[in-house]
Amino acid sequence: MPEALLIPPPGSAANTVVARPSLQAIGLTKEYGSVRAIENLSFTVARGEIVGFLGPNGAGKSTTMRIFSGLLAATSGRAYVAGIPVAKSPDEAKRRLGYMPEHNPLPDDMRVAEYLHLRARLKEVPRKKAKARVEEVLEMCGLQHKTRRKLIGTLSKGYRQRVGIADAILAEPEVILMDEPTIGLDPHQILSIRRLIDSLRGRLTVLISSHILPEIEMCCDRVMIINQGRLVAVGTSASLRRELLTRSEWRVRLKGDVATFEQLLPEVHAGLRLAACSAVDSDGFVEIRLEGPANEPGLGENLLTAVTRRGSWRVREIAFVEPGLEQIFLAATKQGEDTLAPFARKYK
């Protein structure tokens, strides 16, 4: 089994954790009537890690987060927050967790600082420290000055998200869960939220679910991909790329006969083939997309050597197209669907 896909079964030796993880799910299952939202989900998130939680709509991301936050009871399995079982000690678990739900519900008729102060007191930040802590998070989240006095209902989506994040980190919990923190934001706002999450690195454990895959790739140490309620891939972007992607992609910009170039490809590698070719641009160059086998370290060098040796083309660019998390996500969820197809049929 590939390294990145190793998901230790509950109770196995591989699941024995030396340092206490901040988040741990052991065989979590949640059923809504006859619909199984998550199925036997097991994973751990180490202290200080920022982990991306990916999956298509309805995959079970929010359900998992709601179970950890104590809002939902799991049908079976166990969820631990900072080593505390959520089902047995929900209040204790809540004290160690900051949760920003999807759509970030906030009271429209309260002012930012006033709301955060109330939340700080509800989260049992001591009265003497609450004011200073609110000021601290207001500054961290860029909500100081005029924004702090504004009614939440008048804030833009980006600022509302900041208030949600400020609320989640307010009581300095060990773990923060963010359900789609960047949904509906413009690129500037996404960037500022990403910086904010980056600033938490090492201090807090963060589990973020998102559809904005480049954002997850940029700010997360590790990625978990869930599909149809089951964990289908866990690992770093690099390890997932290695394990899940079977093809590599190359981009070549050249001027000359494309048919001759295509004939050259089997000489470079038997698996290399022309995938697409653009129209000739104003300079007479074409952009060619090549597909080859993944994990062939010498392929790029061989291609470069072969093209330059012939010398019958003018070459502007030969580049390896780095596969993004999007491709990994698609590969993992496709693979997951293939694996789960009999299961899905069973529960239809």
Binding site: S69, G70, L71, D91, K94, R95, L97, Y99, P101, H103, P105, L106, P107, D108, R119, L122, K123, E124, D167
Partner: peptide, 14 residues
């Protein structure tokens, strides 16, 4: 309806 009750329930308040 606004989901603020859910947010309230994520705090240690019962």
């Amino acid at each position: 309806r606004h989901g603020t009750l859910e947010a309230m329930l994520t705090t240690p308040a019962s």
